[in-house]
């Protein structure tokens, strides 16, 4: 399982300040902590970085790989920064990954050729400019477009990690099952099966803090059972990593709660923040 640690992120204050000040310590500490906790790839989210994207990405890739012997997932909309990161990346521990292209034509035309040029990996997010995908079929149709573009520009489809686009459960309950089904469908699009990845924490967005753990754990387990090969996660969440290790949410959460949560994911019980209380 590809476990991509999400904690080096411009959104958190400490990491953002370290990026601005080019202070290696907080970033390297966060890199080590995540790898020690089980991450085997690290997401490097520098935001749009409009002023100094290439220079920042070059610095941060080298800074992280000084202490973490894992490949990196370069997360920015700034294509020049992506190029700089790919140049700086040490491939001794695996190929770098671009996070991400979507199914939008403009994004495909700009990001996919760069992935082909460097023969790196790339996340293919199943989203277009015309609104959220309605179901697994629409996700698969976008996936096919992404794969088509890869073949056109000379990137092996084995380098693509298809992302079905996880939406938050609260308000999009039927989409949880559609995501799981999309992960199943994606695999059938190629032989060997396509790789898949999800941004896992989205599922529990807007849920109360005490509910995030079980929602994330159960959804993860259901995706893994459907064939998921990668996830962007918080490796510092100890309970979640224990679920990853055991591949069993009941190693942490009571079996009846897990069973109820599975039913919520499948749409058999309507979600409400307190669904476990009744």
């Amino acid at each position: 399982m590809l476990l991509i640690g999400e904690r080096i992120n411009v959104i958190t204050k400490a990491q953002r300040e370290a990026m601005i000040n080019r202070d290696p310590k907080p970033i390297q500490e966060m890199a080590k902590a995540q790898v020690d906790s089980g991450a085997n790839m690290l997401d490097i989210n520098i935001g749009p970085a409009e002023d100094d994207g290439p220079e920042l990405m070059d610095w941060i890739v080298k800074t992280v790989q000084e202490v973490a012997q894992v490949p990196l997932c370069l997360d920015t909309t700034n294509l020049d920064a992506i190029r700089a990161g790919l140049k700086a990346h040490n491939n001794a521990w695996g190929r770098a990954m671009i996070n991400s292209t979507s199914g939008e034509t403009e994004r495909l035309n700009t990001f996919m050729p760069v992935a082909a040029e460097y023969q790196c990996d790339i996340i293919g997010l199943c989203l277009t400019g015309s609104g959220l995908p309605a179901d697994a079929n629409e996700r698969a149709a976008i996936a096919v477009d992404i794969m088509g573009k890869a073949m056109e520009v000379g990137l092996p489809v084995e380098n693509i990690h298809l992302d079905p686009l996880v939406l938050m459960l609260n308000g999009n309950q039927d989409q949880a099952l559609q995501c799981i089904q999309a992960v199943e469908m994606f695999q059938a699009l190629n032989d060997p099966p396509m790789k898949t990845v999800v941004g896992l924490s989205n599922i529990a967005n807007t849920a109360p803090a005490k509910m995030k753990g079980i929602l994330t754990a159960v959804f993860y387990k259901m995706l893994v059972d459907a064939g998921l090969t990668g996830a962007i996660i918080d490796p510092l969440e100890k309970e979640f990593m224990e679920v990853v290790r055991t591949n069993d949410p009941t190693s942490i959460y009571p079996a009846d709660q897990v069973e109820k949560t599975v039913k919520v994911m499948r749409g058999e019980i309507m979600y409400a923040h307190s669904y476990l209380d009744i």
Binding site: G171, Q173, M270, Y271, A272, H273, S274, Y275, D277
Partner: peptide
């Protein structure tokens, strides 16, 4: 206009 919230309020009322 939020059926998840409609359910949540009824749970809270029951509690």
């Amino acid at each position: 206009l939020d059926f998840n919230l409609a359910k949540q309020i009824n749970i809270l009322l029951s509690q």
